[in-house]
Amino acid sequence: MKTKRIVITGGPSSGKTSLIKYLENEGYQVMHEISRDVILEAKKEGIDQLFLDNPILFSEKLLEGRLKQFHEGENCAAPILFYDRGMPDVTAYMDYLGTHYSENFNKACLQYKYDEIFVLPPWEEIYEQDNERYESFEQAEKIFHFLKNGYENYGYKVIEVPVGSIKERVDFILKKI
């Protein structure tokens, strides 16, 4: 049996992490977001905002981590594996910033494919900024569109998850898959 790889993506404060935690608590296998780990690692090295200071290095670290997660997913015995963001998130964020990047990013996104993509729209009522999330709500809205278009440009059919309770959103996703 082949494991279905399902990506949950969206801009800052769209509810991704809460949704992934809920799925995990319900017994589903998940791969957690790694960007905060990359950010915190850079801060330990004295780089306050690696994504802004060196977007290519930050993106290379993210792509490397997401590729590792993808390969780890090959050993998953569960019927469904949820990812908190996928590889195309990396290029979508660089496109959002207008950062030029090597073809290796596109090659990875085209070579390693997920089965379903769900995108969560920005949700102003739950929006918060913190030490690792420095985008404004208006920027979160723009990022949402870059993410949606980015996945579509890699040939994915992107399904938008309506705003609602975590349970309503999970039920929506599970019905679609």
Rank of each mutant, 00 (worst) to 15 (best):
T99S: 00
E116F: 00
Y134T: 15
A78G: 04
E160K: 00
Y83N: 08
F105R: 04
W123F: 09
D95R: 14
Y93K: 14
F144V: 03
I126T: 06
D89N: 14
P122N: 12
Y134L: 12
T91H: 00
G98F: 06
K113G: 08
D115M: 06
D95H: 15
W123Y: 12
E135F: 04
A77D: 14
L110D: 14
H71F: 11
Y96E: 11
S102K: 07
P79W: 05
E124K: 15
L147Q: 10
V161M: 11
E128R: 14
H145A: 06
Y96N: 10
N75H: 11
Y134V: 06
L120P: 14
F118Y: 15
I159E: 15
G86R: 08
K148M: 05
Y114T: 08
K148G: 03
Y156Q: 08
E72C: 01
T99D: 01
N149K: 08
E72K: 07
F118S: 07
R85L: 03
W123T: 12
E124V: 03
V119S: 12
Y93S: 07
C109D: 12
A140P: 04
A77S: 12
Y93G: 14
V161E: 13
E116I: 05
T99C: 13
I80T: 10
T91G: 00
Y154K: 12
G98T: 12
D89H: 12
Y156N: 10
P121G: 08
G150N: 10
Q129M: 07
F82H: 10
H100K: 14
M87H: 08
N75Y: 05
P88M: 01
V161Q: 10
D115Y: 09
F144D: 14
I159W: 10
F146Q: 05
C109G: 06
N104Y: 03
F144T: 05
D95L: 09
E138H: 07
R133D: 08
F137G: 01
P79H: 07
G155L: 04
V90L: 00
A78M: 09
R85N: 05
L110C: 02
Y112K: 10
N75D: 12
Y154R: 10
Y93W: 12
Y127C: 10
T91S: 13
L147T: 07
D84F: 06
